[in-house]
Design a binder for these strands. Structure first.
Lengths: 155, 155
DNA sequence: ATGATATTGATTTTGATTATCATTATAATT
DNA sequence: AATTATAATGATAATCAAAATCAATATCAT
């Protein structure tokens, strides 16, 4: 179960670094895991605020950073959806890339094993030791096309 | 020749928008095209400053923006090389993706036709109309590995 | 309960990029 | 060459997400 693996990930990180289990930290982590979507810091802040109005913005940022360091989650900086960073849970999920609708902002998680192999081929070809990659596909989703947005002229 | 196509691109954009040929603008464009590398605004600023010390930072930013709008160049926002945007010339060059060494910052331009096809397959599969994509491969280059940087533990 | 240390929330600061604005430059016209 | 309308410049201030600061508070082993 994703939720347990996610919690285990941050738990062991906190333990290894002698960090404490505070109430706000726990609430932020739980809210983020429960939301299970590509949130911005601000969106997460508002979600957490509903449960605990005393929570500050800084703590949300700090906790997101912590979660990223622990490997629980990851920053997403898409090209065409404002300037702010989104975050997604990694633990308990398969590796995937992102397909983003430039009109409505919908994010679809995609995967192609062959595409991964091609990428490794490129690493080898140029004699790089592979660490990570980022692939984002930008386009217009079916719904937005039906609504006449993002159409090709003359299409 | 890349240089001519690049110049033609920005020229026609300026003409179409009734923009003027100023000395600073011309110097910035020329310096950028001549440098022919993945520069930051600051790097370009310092390069231009050598030729014309009166040039201001704002004009460099403005001209870079103009160049991007005209399609002459493009913003690159890599994950692991600071927070600042780099820019690269597009005109007169083939489409390519980027392979980045996370240690020395070297950027290698790569291309794989099959990989492009895979990407289009994903667009189709999810019923998206394709607009663009971004693929970045992060790893350690040969030189950095030889210098003992970016080695796998126990490698 | 105590003490050492980590965490919090409010606030300020940072750093890259944009916007503002008075002055100057451009380019077409007279 | 002077005129004119418009665009561009450079200096500076504003913006905005994210990070740093700091006094007050919470955590947790003892």
């Amino acid at each position: 179960m994703a939720k347990n693996e996610a919690h285990a990930s941050i738990e062991s990180y906190l333990a290894a670094k002698n960090l404490k289990h505070s109430r706000p930290r726990q609430e932020i982590i739980d809210t983020f895991i429960k939301a299970d979507s590509h949130l911005t810091a601000e969106e997460l802040y508002h979600l957490v605020k509903k449960k605990n109005p005393k929570i500050g913005f800084a703590t949300v940022y700090r906790t997101l950073k912590l979660m990223c360091e622990s490997g629980l989650c990851k920053e997403l900086k898409f090209e065409k959806s404002g300037d702010c960073t989104r975050y997604e849970i990694l633990k308990g999920r398969e590796h995937h890339d992102h397909l983003i609708c430039t009109h409505c902002g919908t994010v679809v998680e995609v995967f192609d094993a062959e595409l991964e192999r091609m990428q490794n081929r490129l690493f080898k070809l140029h004699d790089f030791y592979p660490q990570s990659h980022r692939l984002e596909l930008y386009g217009t989703c079916k719904t937005c096309r039906k609504r006449g947005r993002g159409k090709v002229s003359g299409g």
